[in-house]
């Protein structure tokens, strides 16, 4: 939720780990030629303000948080060094498994949006498709909408007594659950909203990736008599792999930082909340509701390590997958 990334952010809150992008077109080398010269004090004028802010608000805090994770906070302030006690407490805390499980479940459901987005993006890229611009705007709308505000309407849609979702389910003979006040269903409901709000972003990134695949490949495949499904499998998917991986990584990193939607959809007084926390919600609960900031710092470190590990696994998988194909 801090600077690093914008747009949700959706959305997610779009977490901090977004990969620094670049357009990749144009002449490189400009930087290197310029680099041979020394520029005196000018560079410090250019980078100074930013680096000062980054040092104060990011670098120092991360060191401090690491330190705090080994301390306990007194009621009236002041910290005591307690060694690894926060970490041992964390391992035995039942909230660890439930919030980790909820986060993984949420991530898995939101990730279902990636294959859906691949399908929709290839439909959207059909040559000569009309209204493509209208579709793009409609699919993208949830991504730019404020999570807190859309959460309000989703609460109503999911409402167990008078929500339209259960009414629709009732039409086909299904007795819908009390979505947002039943543990398990609650996180599923939030994940459906997460999928809804991130689908548009995945879709337009993938559509841009599809545009970059040369038409000649499809022409050649067609001359060879490849079916359309075969073309999709053997040309589209492998050549789109980098975009698919990028979208998946952004989705996973964003999903692991789930907070806004959960907070806004469930509401702080929801009885199902203790069993529906995400990792970040658990952190928030510990640090800013229960006021155990040392413990919360340890949770923050856990989230940091988890996101690092998951990203690493994805990058590895990507190498394997992309090179095998």
């Amino acid at each position: 939720m801090t600077t690093v990334v914008g747009a949700r952010p959706r959305r997610a809150d779009r977490g901090s780990g977004r990969v620094a992008p670049g357009s990749g077109r144009g002449v490189r080398a400009g930087g290197e030629a310029a680099a041979r010269r020394r520029d005196g004090a000018w560079p410090w004028l250019f980078v100074g303000p930013l680096m000062l802010g980054i040092a104060v608000f990011y670098l120092w805090p991360i060191i401090q948080t690491l330190y705090y994770s080994f301390t306990e906070w007194g009621v009236f302030g002041g910290t005591t060094w307690i060694g690894g006690a926060n970490y041992t407490r964390m391992i035995t805390d039942p909230d660890l498994l439930s919030s980790l499980g909820n986060t993984v479940l949420y991530t898995a459901i939101v990730l279902l949006g990636v294959p859906i987005a691949v399908g929709l993006a290839s439909l959207l890229n059909l040559p000569g498709l009309r209204f493509a611009a209208v579709y793009r705007v409609l699919y993208f709308l949830p991504y730019v909408a404020m999570p807190t505000a859309v959460a309000m309407v989703w609460r109503m849609i999911f409402n167990g007594d008078h929500g339209i979702l259960n009414w629709v389910l009732g039409l086909v003979g299904i007795d819908g659950p009390y979505w947002i006040s039943t543990p398990g269903w609650a996180i599923t409901a939030v994940a459906i909203v997460g999928l809804w709000s991130s689908l548009g972003f995945s879709m337009i990134v993938l559509a841009a990736g599809l545009k970059a695949i040369p038409d000649e490949l499809y022409e050649a495949a067609q001359l060879d008599g490849a079916s359309r499904w075969r073309q999709f499998r053997s040309i589209t998917v492998p050549l789109l792999a980098p975009s698919i991986v990028f979208v998946s990584i952004v989705t996973v990193i964003g999903s692991f930082q789930l907070f806004d939607l959960l907070y806004a959809i469930m509401g702080a007084s929801n009885p199902a909340l203790p069993k529906s926390m995400s990792l970040v919600y658990w952190f928030y609960q510990a640090g800013f509701v229960d006021n155990e900031k040392g413990y919360a710092a340890a949770i923050a470190m856990l989230i940091f390590v988890l996101i690092g590990v998951v990203t690493l696994i994805q990058v590895r998988l990507q190498r394997k997958w992309v090179s095998n194909d």
């Binding site: 939720m1 690093v4 000018w42 410090w44 923050a300």
Partner: peptide, 26 residues
């Protein structure tokens, strides 16, 4: 531009991209 410590500063700035934002909050 070319200046001393350029790569160190870039590395420091890059490193904060890898840390989830909650880690800074407290």
């Amino acid at each position: 531009m070319r200046f001393r410590g350029r790569f160190l500063l870039m590395g420091l700035a890059l490193s904060i991209l890898m840390v989830p934002s909650q880690a800074y909050l407290i």
